[in-house]
Design a protein around this nucleic acid. Structure first.
Lengths: 221, 221
DNA sequence: ATTGGTATGTTGAAAATTCAACGAAACGGA
DNA sequence: TCCGTTTCGTTGAATTTTCAACATACCAAT
C-alpha cells in the first residue's frame, strides 16, 4: 500500500491529511484494495454500493447502457480520483450506472457508512474527510450540470461547439486535447458518432476548428 | 423568522438539529431573509455565489437559457429545499444557471464559507450541517445522473417514457402527478414542447398511458 | 513490410426533431 | 358572463439525426 501513498496524497478525498492520518483513515474505513484488468468491471448497474472507490492506478470509466446498446458515459477517472461516491453517500439501493476499468490498474474501496459514524478510535480526521467529500460532491455536481448544458443543446453542432469552447476555457488555450476518443465523445454528448464526425469535419472545412485525433484547436475567425 | 421554524425543521440541511441549534446556526451562517414575487430572480447566470439558498415559502426554479431562448430546467424547489448549494460549496466564480421565484415567497441565504471554517462560538452542530449538506449534494448528484439518463435517450418517446416510468416508481403507483407543465417537462427532457405533446398523444392513442394535465397513469400492457 | 484490429471519416436513405403557425381548452379576473 | 392570457394539442414543411454500410487511416505485433 505504501507505494500508493503519493497518489493518495493527491486525492481530493485526503486533502489536508498527513501520511499518518491517511494510513489511519484507510484502516478506519475498512479499505479494500483490488486489481482489475482492462475492461473488467468494478460494479454493475443494479448493484448495491456502500463503498466509494478511489483509483490508485489505471483508469475507471462510469457509464450507462440502454436496451439498444447506446452508451452514456459519465466520466473517466484517473489516479487519485473518486467514483461511486454519490451513490454510496446517498445510500441508493441500486446504482444506475456501471464502472469498468478503462485501463488496467488497482482501486481502493472505502466504506462510506463508517464515514458517517464517528469511529470508536476517535479519528480526528473524520470531519475533514466528510468536508473533503462534500467538496468532491459539489464539484461533480457542477460537472454534471455542465454536461447537461452541452447535451441539452438541440443540434450536434451546438453540442460539440459548447463542449469544445468549454475545454478551451478550462485549458486556458485555444489548443487543447480532450480525454475522449470519438465514440466516447459522442456518448458523452449523447449523439451519433458518425454524425459527430461529419459535424466536426464541417466545422473544420468552415475554418472554425482544427483537429487531429483528440488534439483540437479553435481558430480565431 | 419563528413562523418558518416548522419549515426549517423539515429541511434536510437541518436534520438532527433542535430548535435552539437551528436558531444558532442561522445567526452563525449570517442568514439573510428575502422576499420575491413571482418571476423575480434570486440570482442570474454569471453571478458569483457564496451563499446557498433555502426556500421558506413559495418555490424556486433553477434554469439555463441559451442564445436562442431554449430553456434548460434544472429543478423546482419547494419549501425546505436547497438551491445553489453546489455552486456555493464548489466556490465557482460564475454560476452557470439562474434562479427565479416560480411562486412568490420568501427565501433564506446562508453563507457557505462560514460553514467551512469552524466558528468562534464553537458551534457543535457545524459538523452535522456539513454532514447534512453532503447528503443533499449526494442526492442531487443522483438526481442529475438520472436526468442525464432521460435526456441521453435518443428519441422524444423514449425520453418521455423513461421519465414517466421513473415517476411511477417514485410514486409507488401507476397513477401519479408530475411537478411540471408541458413546457417545463419539455425543457427538462431537452425536447420540443410540441413534439412532446404529440408523442404523449401517440402514447395515449396506443393505450400505453392516460393523462389529463399533469396527472398521468401508466396502463398495463 | 504485412497483417489484423481499431478508430475515424463519409455517404445516402429513413426516421425523428424542430420550427412556425394556428386552434381549442382552461383559467382567472373584471 | 365576458375577456384576455396562458397552456395544450395539432399539423406540415424544413432541418437534423440516426442508421447501416463501407472506405480510409492508424497502430501494434509478428
Amino acid at each position: 500500500m505504501e507505494v500508493y501513498m503519493p497518489v493518495l496524497k493527491t486525492s481530493p478525498l485526503f486533502a489536508g491529511l498527513d501520511d499518518a492520518d491517511i494510513r489511519a483513515a484507510l484502516a478506519c474505513l475498512g479499505a479494500k484494495r483490488i486489481a482489475r484488468k482492462k475492461k473488467q468491471h468494478l460494479f454493475r448497474s443494479g448493484d448495491r454500493l456502500t463503498s466509494l472507490g478511489v483509483v490508485l492506478s489505471g483508469a475507471v470509466q462510469i457509464y450507462q447502457e440502454d436496451y439498444y446498446g447506446n452508451r452514456n458515459v459519465f466520466g473517466n477517472i484517473g489516479p487519485g480520483g473518486l467514483f461511486g461516491e454519490s451513490f454510496a453517500c446517498a445510500a441508493i439501493d441500486s446504482v444506475p450506472v456501471s464502472a469498468v476499468a478503462s485501463e488496467a490498474g488497482e482501486m481502493l474501496f472505502l466504506d462510506c457508512r463508517r464515514l458517517a459514524t464517528p469511529c470508536e478510535n476517535a479519528c480526528g480526521f473524520h470531519a475533514r474527510l466528510i468536508r473533503n467529500l462534500m467538496d468532491v460532491l459539489a464539484r461533480k455536481n457542477v460537472a454534471l450540470t455542465q454536461r447537461l448544458e452541452f447535451t441539452g443543446r438541440r443540434t450536434t453542432r451546438e453540442k460539440a461547439l459548447a463542449y469544445l469552447f468549454e475545454q478551451a476555457r478550462l485549458a486556458g488555450s485555444s489548443r487543447f486535447s480532450i480525454p475522449f476518443d470519438r465514440q466516447e465523445l459522442a456518448d458523452y454528448l449523447c449523439v451519433e458518432r458518425s454524425g459527430l464526425s461529419s459535424e466536426l469535419a464541417k466545422l473544420r472545412d468552415e475554418g472554425v476548428i482544427q483537429f487531429h485525433k483528440n488534439e483540437f484547436e479553435l481558430l480565431d475567425r
